[in-house]
């Protein structure tokens, strides 16, 4: 199965990349661009008997390695 973990800087943590991207989007004329969080996406093939187990594995991967909870937060999902 394929799982996806998305990691972004936590709200409240300064994200210089996100800030620069927000500025660029505004300059391009996109109206009302607010906070932008620039992060990382991990797509991982895992062996799991069902989606629930796959999602749990993705969450463990995030907690142990992919995400640093001091500065980042994550979302884990199953792609199928």
């Amino acid at each position: 199965m394929k799982v996806q973990v998305t990691v972004v800087p936590k709200s409240g943590v300064l994200d210089p990349q996100g800030k620069a991207i927000a500025g660029a989007l505004t300059r391009l004329g996109f109206p009302g661009v607010g906070d932008v969080r620039a992060g990382k996406v991990f797509r991982v093939d895992v062996e799991a008997k069902d989606a629930e187990e796959a999602k749990a594995l993705a969450g463990q991967m995030a907690e142990k390695l992919l995400c640093n909870p001091v500065i980042e937060e994550f979302e884990a999902e199953v792609l199928g």
Binding site: L14, P16, A20, V70
Partner: peptide, 10 residues
Amino acid sequence: PGALLLNSGQ
């Protein structure tokens, strides 16, 4: 303790 982020000036 803590973590190190990208420099604020990028």
